[in-house]
Amino acid sequence: MLELGQTNDAAAPADLIKDVTEQTFVADVMEASKEVPVIVDFWAPWCGPCKTLGPQLEQAVTAARGKVKMAKLNVDENQRLASALAQQGLPLQSIPTVVAFVDGQPVDMFQGAVPQSQIKEFIDRVAAMKSGGGEDDGGLSEALEAAEQMLTDGAATDAAQTFAAILGEEPENAAAYGGLVRAHVAMDDLDQAEAILNGAPAGISKAPELEAAHAKLELAKQAAGVGPVAELQEKVDADPNDHQARFDLAQALYATGDVQGAVDQLLELFRRDREWNDGAAKTQLLTIFEALKPQDPIALSGRRKLSSMIFA
Rank of each mutant, 00 (worst) to 15 (best):
W43S: 06
K67H: 08
A183I: 06
E194V: 11
V259Y: 03
D28T: 14
D41A: 00
L81M: 14
A176E: 03
E22C: 00
L144Y: 07
V40Q: 05
Q79E: 04
A113G: 13
N8E: 13
E22F: 11
E218H: 06
E290W: 13
S33E: 06
Q88K: 11
A155L: 11
G66D: 07
D41H: 03
P55A: 03
M1R: 07
P294H: 08
V107D: 05
D153V: 12
A10W: 00
T7W: 14
E234I: 04
R303N: 08
R271D: 09
Q93H: 00
N8I: 10
P208H: 02
L180I: 12
L285Q: 14
R182G: 03
Q284F: 05
E275V: 14
P37R: 15
A127I: 11
L210V: 12
P55K: 10
L232I: 10
E31F: 00
D242G: 05
A159L: 04
E209D: 04
A86T: 15
I298A: 06
A200M: 08
S205Q: 13
D153S: 07
E172F: 12
V26P: 14
L266P: 04
E145R: 08
F163K: 08
R304N: 13
A164L: 01
A223I: 15
A155M: 06
D153H: 10
D189Q: 10
V40W: 06
A212N: 11
D76F: 00
V102I: 02
V26K: 15
C50N: 09
R271K: 13
L92I: 11
A212P: 09
D19T: 15
G133M: 06
D41L: 03
S307D: 15
S117F: 06
F110Y: 08
D15R: 14
G112Q: 12
I166P: 01
E290Q: 15
L144K: 14
L57V: 09
S94D: 12
L167C: 15
S205D: 11
A146I: 08
N241K: 15
P115K: 03
I310R: 04
D242Q: 11
E172H: 09
L92K: 09
A44H: 07
P45W: 07
F247D: 08
A207C: 01
S131E: 10
D242E: 06
P55F: 07
G168N: 01
